[in-house]
Design a protein around this nucleic acid. Structure first.
Lengths: 218, 218
DNA sequence: ATATAAAGTTAGATTAATCTAACAAATATT
DNA sequence: AATATTTGTTAGATTAATCTAACTTTATAT
């Protein structure tokens, strides 16, 4: 059994690896808000437990065991987010903080019930894949909205940044997962897009926004 | 903010006080499975925080502040138990362990949603009262089934012991809250009762069982 | 009322997780 | 290539929560 603290390190290791590829002590330290020496000593501890491959001055890597355990924590996190959104009427901008706590609950039955009540969802409210019972993630091939061309018709599949502020911004524009969007034009100057969807005949999305939206091409 | 550890001491203090009246270090130590010296030092710490009245060799008493904070933890515990039972199809024998963990979640919104979805319940799945938003408990006047007389018609209102084994035993007899029970006779020798309810024309309940069942007289 | 037992406290050690200060290695910059 | 910067490690201190051993106080039983 891993402590809550160890679980947080595993999860951060997993998340940084899937965003940035390599994980180093400095990154992990910044992500967790914990000083580097503390991170170093925790890496030694997790190496003892065969959860990470650790060599001085080398990038950090989760072992297969570590990946599985991290994946299972992320599974609990994302199932919880989905449960909060679907069954408890939370907005997608409000699910993260609670899920961050509930992911540490030790009760397979509890998460199995969530899974069942939700009908075995494959993604969380932000479109991120929910790892399976073995902690394995199946990644779908999405494109960034910012990489699409004028005229493209796409479906909003996931959001990359899940900060509450960004999600609230999307709410004000009625942008949500599953939405069909057509790109009317792209401004060469700043790459801002004019898009149309539902009752919105012409909404302007800055490149900062379109860069954070993942879409499926129709 | 209190640590998870402190919360567990507060809750135990509250629960022992409502069962036994007085709380002493030894009781608390046994209840929490923590040695007496550790309890003593935690009591000093909680006294510093104005949560406990502590004097050497005297019984332990929660302050008003301590009672309120303990009550609010118990509120979260019991709301969770009710949510698990009513909304997630858990049996009443399985809700305790998960609630024991979820009661420490810091998110008023999360518990407010539960409360709302449940329709503001007044009791948990075992019939124990759910403290209000100020941590206050309103106790209903129930009788022990074991104190009733032959011929009494009563309604099962609460169970005192909530051990999984006891609750599973009640399941096998289809005994559940709200059930109307008539006492047919009481054996003078061992105080065992013969009762009738629903499709059960004559069920024998030992004194150990009837002593743990709280009823409302009709 | 005295001895024994039970309950409670004090003192000091231990463990997990954190920190700062100082040093070492790797990387980047002129 | 030499130097400066960034990154990483070691050593040692700190805090919360726990423990054991030894001692003290209160309660119980002869």
């Amino acid at each position: 059994m891993n402590s809550l603290t160890e679980e947080n390190y595993l999860k951060a290791l997993f998340n940084i690896a899937s965003e940035a590829g390599e994980v180093n002590v400095n990154e992990l330290s910044k992500r967790l808000g914990i000083k580097m020496p503390t991170v170093t000593s925790m890496m030694k501890k997790l190496a003892e437990k065969k959860l990470v491959h650790y060599e001085s001055y080398k990038p950090l890597r989760l072992t297969e065991k570590g990946k599985k355990e991290a994946g299972l924590i992320i599974r609990k996190h994302r199932l919880t987010e989905m449960f909060l959104a679907e069954k408890m009427n939370f907005g997608w901008e409000d699910v993260h903080d609670v899920a961050e706590q509930i992911e540490h609950i030790q009760s397979p039955a509890f998460f199995d019930k969530m899974d069942e009540l939700l009908g075995y969802p494959k993604i969380d409210p932000h479109g991120s894949p929910i790892p399976d019972r073995n902690g394995k993630i199946i990644w779908k091939e999405y494109s960034k909205l910012s990489d699409c061309k004028a005229g493209d018709k796409v479906k909003l599949a996931a959001v990359i940044n899940t900060s509450s502020d960004f999600l609230k911004y999307l709410n004000t524009r009625e942008l949500r997962l599953g939405l069909k969007i057509k790109i009317k034009s792209i401004e060469a100057f700043d790459k801002s897009m004019i898009v149309t969807y539902e009752k919105h005949p012409a909404e302007v999305l800055s490149n900062i926004v379109s860069d954070r939206l993942m879409v499926e091409k129709a």
